[in-house]
Design a protein around this nucleic acid. Structure first.
Length: 393
DNA sequence: TCTGGGGTCCTAGGACCC
DNA sequence: TCTGGGGTCCTAGGACCC
């Protein structure tokens, strides 16, 4: 046992680093990863950041700030396979790995001390291995609790490692600005600033009731605990069968705002088809269909419908999505539509209801055949008739 | 400077049931 | 006649994270 067993490991500028690995001549050039047109910056190398480019920024603005930047499309990079390889490297040290996103994970290394050394040594070994095997750098936070390890890795960036020992936790946390805490974004920070709270110490020494009044009972109590160094002392890997993802969805911004209902319905069908295929691949079914509509003024609404039975069929998902859209009667032009299914459960565990007049089982067969054909021949081979010959605007 | 796409979790009101 | 309290589900929106 060690007293600082939690590692948080975070790749440095992940997408941008992978693009440099592919094209070493870009090493000292500003590189911006993202889609063109109306996209935003996914990731930028440090030379690009020196020009003021930040992730989340509209691409157009980034290129205005840094006209000589090289733009790389994220699709071409194969980041998923790099991510999988990195996670495998983590698992070679401990089974207690929890991926938080494509490029970061928590590790509990308390059981790995005898084979690999102290948490700090393990962190350095993993950094060296990832640099060696993947050609990218990462940063590591080492702490007794998850929340603190996460902050430590952020402060260690780029290409660093930071250890926070148990007796250092409060001394480490309290001088930090409140925005550093996980879950404190723009709006929450603004509310706290109105109470003249600036540092984590300020937060810690404010009565819980005051925070709850400002932020709500759950968020207020949660932040107060975080300010006193609360967090998990261990890491539970996600067991995909018992704990499937809770929602799955896709959305897409049109190249140009539109009010053409045929175009919009066609897009809803395309998105429904993608979501359903992914659900079947993941072995999940769901009951709640949610559509998202974003208007040209960026106002965004959602509409949802709970189905009588769970499904993983595009036909069901699209039927609900189209029905939800048809009652909207939007007046403004539309910028984006999305389709999402929530209330997901593992298909094997879903209650099988025998309903009178139940759906023709032919649908199951048809959509599974599509899955098979797609697997063998690619996604353009089989698709709904309404999508044939269509190009997105 | 005109703002992506993938998610998670919380809140709050109303329906409905006991 | 003017009135309860709790629990759960559904729906919509919002904040946040990467």
């Amino acid at each position: 046992m060690t007293d600082t067993p939690i590692l948080h490991i975070d790749m440095d500028a992940f997408f941008a680093s992978v693009s440099i690995r592919h094209r070493p001549e870009l090493r000292d050039v500003p590189v911006v990863v993202g889609a063109g047109g109306r996209g935003v910056v996914l990731s930028a190398t440090y030379p690009a950041r020196a020009c003021g480019v930040r992730s989340g920024m509209p691409m157009r603005r980034a290129l205005r700030l840094c006209p000589r930047a090289v733009v790389v499309s994220p699709d071409s990079l194969g980041v998923q396979s790099v991510s999988s390889a990195v996670m495998e490297t983590f698992r070679s040290v401990t089974p207690l790995v929890r991926a938080l996103s494509i490029d970061e994970a928590f590790l509990d290394v308390s059981g790995a001390a005898r084979r690999f050394g102290s948490p700090e040594q393990i962190g350095e070994q993993l950094r060296a291995r990832i640099a060696d095997e993947q050609g990218i750098t990462c940063s590591v936070g080492v702490a007794p609790i998850t929340t603190v390890a996460k902050i430590a890795s952020e402060l260690a960036k780029p290409d660093g490692l930071l250890v926070v020992r148990p007796d250092e936790v409060l001394g480490f946390l309290h001088p930090l600005p409140i925005e550093t805490l996980w879950g404190v974004g723009k709006k929450t920070a603004a509310r706290l600033h109105r109470l003249e709270l600036v540092t984590v110490a300020d937060l810690a020494h404010t009565p819980v009731s005051t925070l709850q009044h400002a932020l709500g009972p759950v968020a207020g109590a949660h932040l107060h605990r975080l300010a006193w160094g609360a967090g998990s002392h261990t890491v539970t890997p996600r067991a995909s069968i018992q704990e499937p993802e809770r929602t799955m969805g896709h959305q897409e911004t049109f190249g140009r705002d539109t009010d053409d209902p045929i175009l919009i319905r066609r897009e809803l069908l395309r998105l429904s088809t993608r979501v359903a295929a992914r659900m079947r691949r993941g072995g999940v079914v769901g009951r709640v269909v949610v559509i998202t509509v974003r208007f040209s003024d960026f106002r965004t609404i959602t509409r949802s419908r709970t189905l009588r039975e769970t499904t993983d069929l595009a036909a069901d998902i699209y039927a609900a999505a189209a029905e939800l859209f048809s009652v909207l009667r939007p007046r403004a032009r539309i910028r984006l539509v999305g389709v999402r299914v929530s209330g997901l459960v593992a298909a094997a565990r879903a209650p099988r209801q025998l309903v009178l007049g139940a759906r023709d089982p032919g649908w199951f067969e048809a959509e599974r055949a599509v899955d098979q054909a797609t697997l063998r021949f690619g996604s353009t081979v089989v698709r709904p008739a309404a999508l044939i010959g269509s190009r997105r605007p």
